[in-house]
Each structure stands twice: as structure tokens, then as C-alpha cells.
Nucleic acid binder design. Structure first.
Lengths: 352, 352
DNA sequence: CCACAGAGTGAAAACGCTTCCACTCCTCGT
DNA sequence: ACGAGGAGTGGAAGCGTTTTCACTCTGTGG
């Protein structure tokens, strides 16, 4: 803990001014370009700054300037391929506009989320981006309402990315994928390959993203004239480990299905492994589809048919929309489209 | 760009002090706990702060306090599984100590690297962590020397993570894996399975990490009594696409090898795909090993034998070492061990 | 030749906080 | 009973910038 690394005195703008033989005011103007300064003077100042290896103090600047260009993105964990892509998108778009971007991982712990958001408020973040589906309980709702209100009243902005707003009139922007449409499309794909008994693996009741996918799945089944009983959803949650476990269990219990729709690609990875471990083949015995099209999905065994959610674009869109004039057209709810990408994990049931 | 989101006046510590009926000094002491304050007073202040939803201004605090607990990680891209894990480790260890962690992506562009480091200096980062192997050219050497010197003279610290120091006496800490040992071990694994013609796919001359792996590979070959001509390294660089392309080319050119040692797991992913596309089987026709053991390596087809480099631990170690007393034992160069993890991508050549 | 615009500049205020210094009370020990 | 010491407190300095305001110079049109 305690460890100050004996700092030397920092070079300030006063030193630069002195060396250039001008006042601090002039030095500041030359450096920041906020006010015209004769070329000769300007050059002298710049020269002095370089000689001294002057580095402006962002704190002092932010203090007087009243705020700073900084965005915070909060995700469950940065090692999840999907979240990483969203974060990359945010980072890229922020960097393009000269904004600083800091990402925080909560591990799914509301406590850590609150601490991080608090910290970001202290740091003067003007944009806080909450990423990914969540289960919307009362605690969550009130937390988000508080974030939104607090940010809003200090000139900031909350954006919900990949999740809907829990309450239509909290002052937050939302940017998300049309999960229901995506799920419906890929379910239809399975249906048109001839599958009738499809299980949805990876439900997580209350989770906005998964519930929407389940809804899309059910809708596709219904549109195809199948009774509601034809659908089955296994609520095993997310992650490779969960998918592996749940699929193993399911296989022990029944073989009365020909395809599985995994809640996301990581669940699919686990399911694929479980099926292989059971001595079955994908897609010959069972077809599998996932969701998100993470970068390595095409390297699974077999390459996974899934729905592509342009994650990086989601991140970019979040900051782009948040940063444009609030009164500009476009409303505050944006839906991004998805499309399915066909690979080799789906075959017709009972085919060679 | 221009968009001020009309901020209202911020609640300051003066407001809190007023409401609690104390001076700013007392309020500050009660809030920060830097100086004892009677329980009753303290409670009044805390109460006032809560009522007002007071949020301290980190800039003002850092300005007077002279610095702040902030670490910066710079990686090529955050969506690379390996880098993501390192970043996660840094973030976790930093968070544990109450430090803020910001990660920047350079896309491999020195220009962006310099801008980011500059920005971090302005922000008062006391720890800058450069992650991953690089090719050490003169420009790089002078850049790093400058970073190290600048950080050092302002009480900060540069740590090189996953790469050696270009010059033994620049004031930087180094934490890296023993790439040579890891490469030697997995090459030995291939050798003991009976392989004699092993190609190293993914060299990148000048790149510290890859060069070390190539050295380990060559050393293992030599230790086994093989002539130097037995080894072959294809310098295709890194990334899945590079691996795919290079492997495809190689296969067209020759089949005079029974195993490939990919420079990292992403290259291996591409190689695996290329081999499958050529109608060959892994491991029956060709064995493949990778490097890093990224999270999804076990879901490749087939599950990849590779060497595990505990990436998250690398990140944690970087901050742990950087933050302990500089004069403490341990030196400033740390080597982390690796071990191979055997899965199913290796078989004996010519086996059933 | 004079008023006057405007360019160039510096002094100083302000941003919000922490901490040094000085002051006032108490509570002890003697 | 009296001085020393310490706890509790507030005033004010200072952190490094930017920006406002006021000032001094030019040069220009009348």
C-alpha cells in the first residue's frame, strides 16, 4: 500500500512561461490554442515546452474547465469476447473524438458496479455506459434510476447498451440489438431445416437479453404452427461451464430433441463439448446454434451457425448517439439489426 | 463534438460543510478520514453529504494531493483473448488496491502509443504497463527509454509486461514469461511423440516474444540431436488470418512435415482451419500445437495442445511488483513459469 | 493630427479540495 | 491552583490551469 515513489517537482506552465519570457497567460494561450498568439511568440513557447518536456496537468485543466471528456464503460468481465468487442468499439469511437475511455469490470456484483459508477462520477465522467443484459430486479431498477438522475443532473448521460430501460422515463439512452428478431430468425432457420423439437439452452429468467431471445424462439415456433408445448427452455444461465453442465444433464434425461439453440456462443461451446463427450455428433445427431458470433465461433467443432450481433458497432453507436445533440432527432431508444451466419453446425434431422 | 449538455452547479464540499454547520476543513477531515474528528460531528457531515448526494471532485483532490492512484495498460487490441486476460489481471489487482485502471488500445501504431502514454502522463498515471511482445527497432528503443525516464522522473513507473527491457539500464520493471522454456517444453512434447519434422509457423523476426519461442524450438531440436536444418520457421506474423494463409501456402508447397508449432493459439486456429480445408486431419495427418492457452483453445477442432501462460497472473504480478517498495528485494526483472497442457491435437506420426 | 478599433499581453480570480498553522478550550499532573 | 499538553476547530494558503478584465500599444480612417 503506502508507497510514494519519491516524486520530483513537476514542470509547470509557469516554468515554460518563464523560459519563453512570457506570462503564464500567454503560455497557456500558445499551448492550448484557445486564443490567437503571434507566430513568433507561439513558437518560443512551444520550444520551451519541448525543451522542458512539459506535460500539462489534466486535473488542473479539468478543474478550471469544469469537466473533461471521459467515458466509462462497465461490463461484467473484460475477457468475455462479446464484452471485449463492445468495449473496443466504445474505446475506438471515444478515442476518435479525443475522449478518454475507462472500462470497469464488475464480475456481476452490484456492489462493485455502484462503487465503480461512484468513482467515475468523482472522476468527472460525462458518459457512463452499462453494457449487457441483466436481470431487472427492484434493486437494479432503483440503482439505474439513481445513476441516470445523478448523471443527468450533473450534465452527464447514462447509456444502456444491450439492455432496455427499466422505466421509460428515466433519462437514459438505450442502444441494443433486436434480440427477439435475431432469435426468431435463427429458430426459423432450424425450423426450415426440418427440426421440430428444439430446446433453448441457457435461459436466465428475468434477464432482459435472454428473455427476449426466448420470446423470439417461442414466436418462431408459434408462427410455424407448433404448439407451445413443442418448445422447451432450460434455464441454466450463461457461460461455457453452465452450457457444458446443462447439456450433459439434458442428454442423460432425454434424447427427444434434434436441435439446441444456445443462449449465446459460450453456452454453445459448452454444449458442443457435452455432445461430443456423449459420443454424439454435431450436426449429424444434433444441430446446434448459438448467439453473438464471437470471433472464434468459426473455429468451434464444427464451426458454429449463429446470429451475428455487431458488438463493436454497438459500442460505437452508444457513444456516437450519446454525444450528439440531445435535442437532435432520433429519440433515445435505438435498435440495431442482426443477421444469421450459417456455418456447419446445422443439418436436417435424420439426414445421412 | 461541441456539445456541453448544460451542466447544473455541482455540489461542493462547501455546501456539505454549510449544511452540517462546520467549516470546510472539518468537513474534509470527516469525509476523507485523514484526521480524527469526533463521532458526532463526523456523523453530521456524513449525513449532510448523503442528503446532498455529494460527490468529491477527483480533480481537485488530485491537484492538491499531488497525483493519484491510477494505472494505465496499453495493449495492441483489447479483443485479443490474451491481452484481455492480462488487462483483466491488471484491472483486478489495481481495483483491489483502490487504484483506477485505464486501458488503451494502439492497434500496433507507435503514434497512437505515444499519444496514449502522453495522455496518461497528463492524467497523472503513476504506472504505465506496456503489454505484449514487440519488434525492437531503434524507434521503439528510444520511445521506451523516453517513457521510462519521464515516468521515473515524475515519480511514476514503467513496466514492461511480456517483453524484455531493450536496454538493461533504463528504469523499467520487467515481468514476462519464459518463452524460451515454454517453447522448448512443447517442442520436446512433439519430439517425444515421435515427430522429427516440425515447422514453426508464425515467426516475426525482431519480435521479442516470437524470437524467444523460436529459440526454444531450435534448442529443443538441437538437444534431441537433430541438425539445424531439421527446423523450419515460417515468418507469417500473428493472427488467425495470417495462420490460415501461411498454412494454406505451406501445404501447397510441401507435405514434408508431421507437426506444426504455431506461434500462438490464434495462428493455430488459422492453421487448423487450413489443414481441415485441405482435407487433412488433425492429429491423424498433422499434429498442431499452439501457445498461450486462450480460453477457447479447448473448443477448437480438435482441442488444442498448447502451453499455458497464466495471462491474468501476469497482469496481477505487474502491478503487484510495481507497487511494492522499490528498494525491496526481488530485482526488477521477473520471469513467470509456464506449463504445457495436453489436449487432442497431437498424435504420433503414422499412427492409426 | 486625433479618436478609435483591435491586436497583444499580463495580473489576478476562479475551479474544489487538503492541509498547515494558529487558536481556543479542556483535562491532566504536580 | 496553575501550566503543559492535546483535542477540536476554522482561516487561509496553495495545487496548476484557464479565462476575464484591463491595459498598452500599434495602425487606420476621418
Amino acid at each position: 500500500m503506502g508507497n510514494d515513489m519519491g516524486a520530483k517537482r513537476r514542470v509547470t506552465i509557469r516554468d515554460v512561461a518563464e523560459r519563453a519570457g512570457v506570462s503564464m497567460a500567454t503560455a497557456s494561450r500558445a499551448l492550448s490554442g484557445n486564443h490567437p498568439v503571434p507566430t513568433a511568440t507561439r513558437a518560443r513557447v512551444l520550444r520551451a515546452a519541448r525543451d522542458l518536456d512539459y506535460v500539462a496537468n489534466a486535473h488542473a485543466r479539468a478543474l478550471v474547465g469544469g469537466g473533461r471528456k471521459m467515458a466509462a464503460v462497465v461490463v461484467r468481465q473484460v475477457t468475455s469476447p462479446f464484452y471485449a468487442q463492445v468495449a473496443e468499439g466504445v474505446e475506438a469511437e471515444a478515442a476518435d473524438r479525443g475522449w478518454l475511455c475507462v472500462v470497469g469490470a464488475t464480475g456481476g456484483d452490484p456492489q462493485r458496479e455502484m462503487e465503480f459508477v461512484q468513482l467515475m462520477r468523482e472522476e468527472g465522467a460525462r458518459l457512463v455506459i452499462l453494457v449487457g443484459g441483466v436481470v431487472e430486479d427492484d434493486a437494479y431498477r432503483s440503482r439505474v434510476a439513481h445513476y441516470a438522475q445523478a448523471l443527468d443532473s450533473s450534465g452527464g448521460r447514462l447509456v444502456l447498451c444491450g439492455r432496455p430501460a427499466p422505466d421509460p422515463d428515466i433519462p437514459a439512452l438505450v442502444v441494443e440489438f433486436d434480440n427477439e428478431a435475431g432469435a426468431r430468425a435463427i429458430t426459423a432457420h432450424l425450423l426450415s431445416a426440418g427440426h421440430r423439437r428444439i430446446v433453448f439452452l441457457g435461459g436466465l429468467p428475468g434477464n432482459t437479453a435472454l428473455d427476449a431471445r426466448v420470446a423470439g424462439y417461442r414466436a418462431a415456433l408459434a408462427e410455424h404452427g407448433l404448439p407451445r408445448s413443442a418448445g422447451r427452455v432450460v434455464d441454466c444461465g450463461l457461460g461455457r461451464a453452465a452450457g457444458l453442465r446443462a447439456m450433459t444433464e439434458l442428454l442423460k434425461e432425454t434424447r427427444e430433441f434434434t436441435a439446441v439453440f444456445a443462449g449465446d456462443d459460450m453456452v454453445a461451446a459448452g454444449a458442443l463439448r457435452a455432445i461430443a463427450d456423449a459420443g454424439l455428433s454435431v450436426p449429424d445427431d444434433i444441430s446446434v446454434v448459438g448467439y453473438n458470433d464471437i470471433p472464434l465461433a468459426e473455429d468451434f467443432n464444427p464451426p458454429l451457425t449463429t446470429v451475428r450481433t455487431p458488438a463493436e458497432e454497438l459500442g460505437r453507436a452508444a457513444v456516437r448517439i450519446a454525444l450528439r445533440d440531445p435535442e437532435q432527432s432520433g429519440g433515445n431508444h435505438h435498435l440495431l439489426g442482426t443477421h444469421i451466419v450459417v456455418r456447419r453446425s446445422v443439418a436436417s434431422p435424420g439426414a445421412p
